[in-house]
Nucleic acid binder design. Structure first.
Lengths: 119, 119
DNA sequence: CAGAATCCCCTCAGATACTG
DNA sequence: CAGTATCTGAGGGGATTCTG
C-alpha cells in the first residue's frame, strides 16, 4: 500500500476541503488564535459540521490546540496553531509560489482567500 | 466560494490519491519519463482506470506531456514531466520536510514510496 | 455559542470485463 | 499495450434540526 508514506499521510488530511483555509484563518488571528464562530463567519459556505470535523482532525494531528473557556456563559472555544501548525504554512507558501509561477492565468483569487491571506 | 484560490485549486488535484506517487515515478524515470505499464507496475494497487484518469488530469493541468509512439506496434505511450511538473516536486519536498520534522514517529515508510523516492 | 445527530446526495475509488 | 465501459460500495460534504 501507499498509506505508510509520510507525504501521503499528510496529504490525506491536508488535501481535504476547507483545511488550508481554516489553517490560514488561524494564522491570521492574533496569536494564531480564533474562535469557532469567528472562523465560520470568515469562511462563507462552510457548515458547522464540517468546521467541527476539520478542527477535530487538526487537533488530533497536533496542528492546533483547543481551549474551552468554561468560565464564560455561553461557553466559548478557541483554537490556536501549534508550532507544527504554524510551520505548515511554509508548505502552503510553497504551493502558492508554484501556482503563481505556473498558473498565472488563475490569479483571480476569491476575496476571502488569497489577497489577504498574508502569503 | 473558495474555489477561486490558486492554492485550493492546486490542492484539488494534487491532493487526490496516487497523484504524488505518479509524479514521483515520473521524476525517477530517465528524462523524467515513464511508460504507462511501467508506472502501473511500480505502484502496486493502482488500477488502470485510476492511473489513466490521473494522467489525464496531470496533462490537462500542464504538469506532464503525453507522447504516443505510433510507429511501434503494439502502440506505446510515454509521459514526461514538464517544467512545472518537475518544479512541483519542490512542494512535495517541503511536505516531506514538514512531516519528518513533526511526525517523526511515522517515518516507517512503505517500500516503494519514500526510501527511494529521492527526496 | 459550539457543536452532535440525521438524512440525502454525489463523487470517487476499486473490481471486472472488454477493445483498438 | 494502453486504455475504455460499467457496476458497485464507501465516504465525504451539505442542509437541517436539536441541545447543553
Amino acid at each position: 500500500m501507499q498509506s505508510g508514506c509520510t507525504v501521503n499521510q499528510t496529504l490525506k488530511y491536508l488535501g481535504k476541503k476547507w483545511m488550508l483555509l481554516i489553517i490560514l484563518e488561524l494564522y491570521k488571528g492574533e496569536g494564531y488564535t480564533r474562535r469557532f464562530t469567528e472562523i465560520k463567519e470568515r469562511l462563507p459556505g462552510i457548515t458547522a459540521k464540517v468546521l467541527s470535523a476539520r478542527l477535530k482532525e487538526l487537533e488530533e494531528e497536533g496542528l492546533i490546540e483547543k481551549r474551552i473557556d468554561a468560565t464564560s456563559v455561553p461557553g466559548r472555544s478557541d483554537y490556536t496553531l501549534t508550532e507544527s501548525g504554524v510551520d505548515i504554512v511554509e508548505v502552503i507558501k510553497e504551493i502558492k509560489r508554484w501556482a503563481l509561477r505556473w498558473k498565472i492565468e488563475n490569479l483571480a483569487c476569491g476575496a476571502q482567500d488569497c489577497h489577504d491571506c498574508m502569503l
